[in-house]
Lab assay of single mutants.
Amino acid sequence: NKFNKELQWATWEIFNLPNLNEEQVKAFIDSLRDDPSQSANLLAEAKKLNDAQA
Rank of each mutant, 00 (worst) to 15 (best):
N1Q: 05
N1R: 00
K2M: 15
K2D: 15
K2I: 15
K2V: 14
F3H: 09
F3A: 04
F3R: 00
F3K: 02
F3S: 03
F3E: 13
N4M: 05
N4K: 02
N4Y: 10
K5N: 15
K5E: 15
K5Y: 13
K5A: 15
K5M: 08
E6M: 04
E6K: 02
E6R: 02
E6V: 07
E6H: 07
E6G: 03
E6N: 05
L7K: 02
L7V: 14
L7T: 06
Q8N: 06
Q8R: 04
Q8F: 09
Q8T: 07
W9S: 06
W9H: 13
W9I: 08
W9P: 03
W9F: 12
W9D: 11
W9V: 08
A10H: 06
A10E: 02
A10W: 04
A10P: 02
T11P: 02
T11V: 11
T11D: 04
T11N: 05
T11A: 09
T11L: 14
T11M: 05
W12N: 08
W12A: 15
W12K: 14
W12F: 10
W12I: 10
W12E: 15
W12L: 13
W12M: 14
E13N: 03
E13V: 11
E13A: 08
E13L: 10
E13K: 06
E13Y: 09
I14P: 02
I14V: 06
I14N: 02
I14H: 02
I14E: 04
F15T: 15
F15N: 15
F15M: 15
N16W: 05
N16F: 04
N16A: 10
L17D: 00
L17M: 15
L17E: 00
P18S: 11
P18A: 05
P18Y: 07
P18N: 07
P18L: 08
P18R: 06
N19A: 05
N19E: 04
N19L: 05
N19T: 03
L20I: 04
N21K: 13
N21D: 13
N21W: 09
N21F: 09
N21S: 11
E22A: 13
E22K: 12
E22M: 15
E22N: 11
E22S: 14
E23K: 08
E23V: 12
E23Y: 13
E23L: 11
E23Q: 09
E23W: 06
E23S: 11
E23H: 13
Q24W: 01
Q24A: 02
Q24E: 04
V25N: 01
V25K: 15
V25L: 06
V25Q: 14
V25P: 00
V25G: 02
K26M: 11
K26N: 11
K26L: 09
K26A: 10
A27S: 14
A27N: 11
A27Y: 15
F28E: 00
F28V: 02
F28P: 00
F28G: 00
I29G: 03
I29H: 04
I29V: 11
I29R: 02
I29P: 00
I29Q: 04
I29Y: 03
D30F: 08
D30I: 12
D30M: 11
D30Q: 12
D30A: 13
D30R: 09
S31K: 11
S31N: 07
S31I: 14
S31G: 11
S31E: 06
S31L: 09
L32E: 00
L32K: 00
R33H: 14
R33E: 12
R33P: 01
R33D: 09
R33Y: 15
D34K: 09
D34W: 09
D34H: 10
D34I: 12
D35W: 07
D35N: 13
D35R: 09
D35E: 07
D35V: 05
P36N: 02
P36I: 12
S37H: 06
Q38G: 07
Q38E: 13
S39D: 01
S39R: 05
A40P: 08
N41H: 15
N41I: 11
N41D: 05
N41R: 09
L42G: 01
L42Y: 07
L42D: 01
L42V: 14
L43Y: 06
L43V: 15
L43R: 03
L43D: 00
A44I: 11
A44M: 12
A44S: 11
A44F: 09
E45F: 07
E45I: 12
E45V: 08
E45T: 10
E45M: 10
A46V: 03
A46E: 01
A46M: 02
A46H: 01
A46W: 02
A46T: 00
K47E: 06
K47H: 11
K47W: 08
K47L: 09
K48P: 00
K48T: 10
K48E: 07
K48S: 09
K48W: 10
K48N: 12
K48F: 07
K48L: 13
L49T: 08
L49D: 02
L49S: 03
L49M: 10
L49V: 12
L49W: 05
L49H: 03
L49I: 10
L49E: 03
N50P: 00
N50F: 01
N50M: 01
N50T: 00
D51R: 07
D51F: 09
D51M: 12
D51I: 11
A52H: 10
A52Q: 10
Q53H: 05
Q53I: 09
Q53P: 03
Q53V: 06
Q53R: 03
Q53G: 07
Q53T: 06
A54G: 14
A54V: 10
A54R: 02
A54S: 08
A54M: 13
A54E: 11
